[in-house]
Design a protein around this nucleic acid. Structure first.
Lengths: 109, 109
DNA sequence: TTTAGTACCTTGCAATATACAGTACTGAAT
DNA sequence: ATTCAGTACTGTATATTGCAAGGTACTAAA
């Protein structure tokens, strides 16, 4: 999968995936990996950055069968930022799809 | 518009927009600008790179009302690469939309 | 002659995904 | 007992690419 496509989108992904409930890093890696390849080394720095920017708060929790997990909770600002990104994403991907349709010419232009 | 979203996608855009007929740089800038913001300084280097990589061939043509235009013609390799990118894009945006749906929970998860 | 529009080019910067390397815990297989 | 796979998090160096901001140069209208 084209690595460039993911720029900015992974941010959107981790934000929306924590919207309905706290998630830990490794769990997010697995959830996103179901849809397309993602490197572990990408997610953790991203989560740290978003936390630093105030979009997440975190807490540790013990795990049976491994080291403790760091859970990420979306803050109020995080939720607002997520809404903004989702809205931008919708505008964006629809625009791209129009261009693709226009270019490939399935009779709709 | 989030600048990161466009990484790699502008490449896809200029390729598909030349699929049905040769286009010149400024024209591509205008076509893409109808859907979302794009900086002129982004498109020209991109077109040069894709030409260097063998995906475009070019020719100059006089214009009434301005300097000569540089037209870009999609090569056979360019078309193959475009097909690949379109396919990757489709997989990608559908994956992202599933994640967004999953996260925002409109009952479909 | 000055401005707006057309049309192209170039450089430096910022953002971010990846590769790669490392730490550390648990449990099953050798 | 030890090795390995899986879980879980951290950190750094690198490559790619979009943007800002500058520039050149042509035509036509104010």
């Amino acid at each position: 999968m084209n690595a460039q496509f993911k720029k900015g989108i992974l941010e959107l992904c981790v934000l929306v995936l924590t919207a309905k409930g706290d998630k830990y890093g490794y769990e997010l890696v697995q959830m996103i990996s179901e849809k397309f390849f993602i490197a572990e080394g990408t997610v953790y720095p991203l989560l740290r950055r978003l936390t630093k920017e105030g979009y997440f708060s975190t807490y540790l929790k013990e795990s049976s069968g491994g080291p403790p997990r760091k859970y990420y909770t979306l803050t109020v600002e995080g939720r607002a930022y997520m809404d903004e990104l989702v809205s931008e994403w919708n505008t964006f991907y629809e625009g791209v799809n129009l261009i693709v349709k226009e270019g490939l010419g399935d009779g709709a232009e």
